[in-house]
């Protein structure tokens, strides 16, 4: 019973990190209709910067640096690359991000190779006892911090002028442009946010009990995609729900590997995709996605 609870809490924490990754991906997609194939390497780059700067400048400064670098990378992607392509040519833009991803991954592979860099976060290695549960401090912090982050983001989207512009251009880009919303600014902000959110999530993913920053973080991050689909692409709520479902299911399956051995080794890593396909068979736009009515 205790073990199951521990697994559940761990799953929720992982799921919240997925939700963060998903959010960045979805915000970019909704604001610009671009599938960002480089999202996972944004994440890896962000935490790589944190891990490699932390021995010299300390974790706090390094974390800020990592966030800044990933945010700037997002900005540069939008300003230097995507803004040079016709805004309606989503294919070309998506392929641009593939190219970018190839370059980033190559560079990170060159630098990281097989090594694992410790993240050096102050919460690393600590566990907390909550009644009968023993949990890594990371897990507890994640469960507290991520909802705060998502709440802040929601407030930003609903209360500020930027949020309004953002939502307007998501709903109807041409209409928004007609009433004077500067689409470029909206999309640049979305890309910066994507970098920031990815790095924040990356810090969580690379924290204890994970050994640190390595190339494999990138493939962990990819599991956020099924989470996005399960929730449906339309709502922040959907991203969170999808993330939680994937996180919990993954942790439960991995935690019960022995009794689920018929699924094969490493089933925890793929069960998210199975859940996704089942959900899509049942609801083609995900759990919370709205059915599209195409107008003619």
């Amino acid at each position: 019973m205790t073990r199951l609870l521990e697994l559940l809490v761990n799953g929720v924490s992982l799921g919240l990190l997925y939700a963060l990754i998903t959010l960045g991906f979805v915000i970019v997609f909704k604001a610009t209709r671009v599938v960002n194939f480089a999202h996972a390497s944004f994440l890896l780059l962000g935490v790589y910067v944190v891990a490699s700067a932390q021995p010299s400048i300390g974790f706090g400064a390094a974390a800020l640096l990592g966030l800044a670098v990933a945010g700037l990378l997002g900005l540069a992607t939008e300003r230097l690359l995507l803004s040079r392509v016709d805004r309606r040519n989503h294919h070309a833009m998506a392929i641009l991000t593939i190219g970018l991803n190839v370059v980033l991954t190559a560079e990170l592979t060159r630098r990281l190779g097989e090594s694992v860099l410790p993240l050096g976060a102050p919460w690393d290695g600590h566990v907390v006892k909550l009644g009968p549960l023993t949990l890594p401090l990371t897990v507890v912090l994640t469960i507290v911090a991520v909802p705060v982050l998502i709440g802040g983001l929601t407030a930003l989207l609903t209360l500020t002028g930027w949020g309004l512009a953002m939502r307007a251009s998501i709903a109807d880009a041409e209409g928004a442009a007609l009433v004077g919303i500067r689409l470029r600014r909206v999309s640049a902000t979305a890309w910066v946010l994507a970098g920031l959110l990815a790095t924040a999530a990356g810090i969580g993913l690379a924290s204890f009990p994970s050994p640190g920053v390595s190339l494999s973080i990138e493939s962990v991050a990819i599991a956020a995609f099924p989470a996005a689909i399960i929730g449906g692409f339309d709502s922040l709520g959907g991203a969170i729900a999808g993330g939680l479902i994937v996180g919990v299911v993954q942790v439960l399956v991995a935690g019960n590997q022995d009794s689920l051995s018929f699924l094969g080794l490493g089933a925890g890593d793929v069960v998210a995709y199975l859940v996704m396909i089942v959900v899509l068979l049942w609801r083609p736009s995900g759990l919370f996605g709205s059915k599209e009515f195409s107008r003619v």
Partner: peptide, 28 residues
């Protein structure tokens, strides 16, 4: 049943699932 009903990014990511499930099967 999935491919006939989905489109766009939904189909893209649903089919991405096949790669991971397939890789899992290849290993096991």
């Amino acid at each position: 049943p999935v491919a006939g009903r989905l489109r766009g990014i939904y189909l893209g990511i649903a089919s991405l699932g096949l790669v991971f499930l397939g890789h899992h099967l290849l290993l096991n």
